[in-house]
Write a protein that binds this DNA or RNA. Structure first.
Length: 702
DNA sequence: CTTCTCTGACTTTTT
DNA sequence: GTCAGAGAAG
């Protein structure tokens, strides 16, 4: 029922992609053309048609958020009780599904199922430790981590690198760090994100029967955001899929691809690797107006190596896209705030319909200031909402040690906590012993305590620590709540917490207290930050990266200046510039109705003021497609300008209740206008928001 | 061991 | 301008 209702709304191309089952399908979809809708409907359609056969399909994307949305939409479109049946479905991120496979198969490839999953932070900590130990410049850890991750996601082992790069002056030190990193991870029974994919691939390659069972089980495979899949993820799909695969993507929305080694467009590659691929295009945008499409297309069409698409819309042409140029960033921010207030007061848009986008987080400050001045509620999305806070990391480290005593990164974290009274010297001895014997820190401590190297007092301290860990890890099968209580009753950890952290912990216990410890730990590693979506009636502020996959009726893109868009560090190569252009394109195509682009001549970046030029990308927009408005800081007649009118006395305050002869009782949202022509916006619960001139609307104060 | 001051780095970011 | 991390001083 629900499916048929929704199917009516699908375009011809979408329905075609849903019905077609004869060969692999590559869906080339533009922004807002209903690619996710297609995927969820195909899933639901097959599922509804033949539960026996299509009860266990695989549907993957890249982010948790997208996966969650996918799951919800499928649940909505399937015929029966959405709660019960989707549990067995393989819907999620590549990483979570690989994790699930590894656990299900009891991972017979040199790892045991009590492996811990390292997130990027853990990864960085390990790399820093290695760099430090190898007497290399530690501050490089971020770059090193990035490179290693890149190698791994491209399935380049150290051995392969050695043979491939022989003739280049390949960084030998980097290679050594890579080897060492892999070695340490192995010893700790720890997997990073890339390992989840790589180990699954190995599992499949070494156990053809296991692979075969999954090929049987996944009767159909659906992939969203296909353009962003890594090489390893792509191999995963290639192993599992035959004709029974649909991938959907938009190469114009790829991000983080600028440093990709792979030059070939992955969409092209798919067509080559999968025989008889059926190519379908979704070019009707259900989101943007024609004006927005025209402008954004003029920008993105300057990119090379893209699959050409022409998006169209049968929505009205809509408002013209506007570009404003200001003298200073404060003017820009003020203008944005004022404009938002106007839009809101006109009553057509609520604050949550509006987004302000920028390239770098630090741009948000000025804008936040301006919004505060206008009393506009807003929410900054992304940036500092670190779910992995310091204290939380402490707790998780303890929990991980319960789970896996060989987790050195967590052990280092815990043992270095204050009042453990274990000196750097002792720690060094432990590290050396572990290194010498090729064992984990935990095992090294056990060994050293049995030997003669340490004094009685040190042994005692370490002994207490060991007994604690032993006692805790004897209870691996507990639930999260029990584990936390255990840690609490045997360490001073809980006592050291402030109120906020305590709240955070009770929140976690409330949310997932009944989860098995192991399950909780992988969930924590596999889900990061963003459960904070849009808030009730707030303007959303975020970076262009963060806006991926969202849409808003009104979008402001700020800081359209050379140096910001494109960012000054990304103007060297064409690949970098292409990515910056895609980023700009991505931002523009988030807008459903109205798109504002703004920039300013004077901007403070870090400590210094800079003179900015308008973004070079603006030159790609035909002059008549857009309204170009330049605001001068000081109008020529500034000196002779009449002083601002005295503040107007308003008869009503916001929030006060009034009665209208026709619409009944409402609440004043705002008062504005001249003394003799005061206008008000009133929210009538039954009628909606109305703008009224006080002179004519016979309002009655109540 | 703790606290303070200095230095310097500084896009974006998912899993 | 701001934050973190390292090193020096208490």
């Amino acid at each position: 029922m629900s499916e048929n209702l929704a199917l009516d709304k699908l375009s011809g191309q979408q329905s075609a992609a849903i019905d077609y089952m004869d060969s692999p399908i590559l869906v080339l979809a533009g922004a807002g053309c209903g690619k996710t809708q297609l995927i969820t409907h195909k899933f639901a359609h097959l599922y509804n048609k033949n539960r026996e056969k299509y009860g266990s399909m695989l549907a993957v994307t890249l982010t948790n958020k997208a996966a969650g949305e996918m799951r919800d939409r499928i649940a909505f479109a399937i015929d029966d009780d959405p709660q019960s049946n989707l549990k067995g479905a393989w819907v999620g991120t590549f990483y979570s599904q690989c994790n699930r496979i590894l656990l299900k198969e009891k991972a017979s490839i040199g790892i045991t199922t009590d492996y811990v999953i390292y997130d990027s932070e853990d990864q960085c900590r390990l790399i820093r430790h290695i760099l430090n130990d190898m007497k290399l410049y530690e501050a490089l850890y971020k770059g090193v981590a990035g490179k290693i991750s890149y190698f791994k996601s491209s399935l380049l082992t150290p051995e392969e690198l050695l043979s491939t790069y022989n003739n280049f002056d390949f960084d030998e030190k980097l290679l050594k760090v890579y080897v060492r990193y892999q070695d340490e991870m192995k010893r700790m029974n720890a997997l990073d994100y890339d390992d989840l994919i790589a180990y699954t691939l190995r599992l499949f390659e070494e156990n053809p029967d296991v692979l075969d069972s999954y090929r049987q089980m996944f009767s159909y495979i659906l992939v969203d955001e296909f353009q962003d899949t890594t090489y390893a993820q792509y191999q995963f799909l290639k192993l599992l899929a035959r004709d029974n695969i649909l991938v959907a993507g938009d190469d114009d929305q790829t991000l983080y691809k600028s440093r990709d080694f792979e030059t070939e467009n992955i969409l092209t590659k798919f067509e080559k690797d999968f025989a008889n691929t059926k190519l379908l295009r979704l070019e009707q945008s259900f989101r943007c107006t024609q004006n927005i499409l025209t402008v954004s297309d003029s920008v993105i069409s300057k990119n090379s190596h893209r699959k050409h698409k022409i998006l169209w819309s049968d929505k009205i042409a809509g408002e013209k896209v506007c570009h404003y140029w200001f003298m200073a960033e404060e003017d820009e921010a003020k203008y944005i705030a004022k404009n938002i207030k106007d839009l809101y007061l006109k009553g057509n848009y609520s604050y949550s319909d509006i987004a302000i986008l920028y390239r770098v987080n630090l741009q948000s400050r000025v804008i936040e200031e301006a919004l505060k001045n206008e009393r506009i509620p807003f929410k900054v999305i992304g940036s500092s909402t670190l779910y992995h806070k310091r204290q939380m990391k402490d707790l998780i480290s303890y929990l991980r040690l319960i789970w896996n005593r060989d987790d050195n990164v967590s052990l280092r974290w815990v043992i270095n906590q204050p009042n453990k009274a274990i000196t750097a010297n002792t720690l060094n001895k432990i590290e050396n012993e572990a290194k010498k014997e090729g064992i984990s820190l935990y095992k090294a401590i056990v060994k050293l305590c049995a030997g003669k190297g340490f004094s009685a007092s040190i042994k005692e301290k370490l002994g207490t620590f060991l007994t604690l860990i032993d006692m805790l890890s004897a209870k691996k099968e507990v639930t999260l709540s029990e584990a936390i209580k255990l840690v609490g009753s045997h360490t001073s950890y809980i006592e050291s917490l402030d109120e906020n952290s305590l709240n955070d912990i009770s929140e976690i216990m409330y949310r997932s207290g009944n989860m098995a410890l192991g399950e909780f730990l992988s969930t924590v590693s596999l889900t990061t930050t963003n459960d904070d979506t849009r808030c009730m009636n707030c303007v959303s502020l975020m970076t262009l990266y963060n806006v991926k996959g969202m849409e808003f009726p009104v979008v402001f893109i700020s800081g359209l200046e050379d140096g910001l868009i494109p960012y000054f560090k990304a103007t060297e190569t064409t690949e970098d510039l292409d990515e910056e252009r895609r980023l700009f394109y991505l931002g523009m195509t988030r807008a459903k109705d109205i798109l504002f682009m703004t920039g300013a001549r004077k901007r403070r970046l870090y400590a210094k003021f800079q003179d900015q030029e308008p973004s070079r990308f603006l030159k790609d927009i035909p002059k008549d497609c857009c309204l170009w408005i330049e605001k001068n800081a000081i109008p020529a007649n500034a000196a002779t300008r009449t002083p601002p009118p005295p503040p107007v006395e308003f008869p009503y305050n916001t929030g006060c209740r009034v009665k209208h002869p026709k619409w009944g009782i409402g609440v004043i949202r705002d008062c504005y206008g001249e003394q003799n022509d005061i206008k008000v916006t009133v929210n009538f619960p039954n009628v909606g928001v109305k703008r009224l001139a006080l002179k004519y609307a016979n309002l009655e104060k109540i």
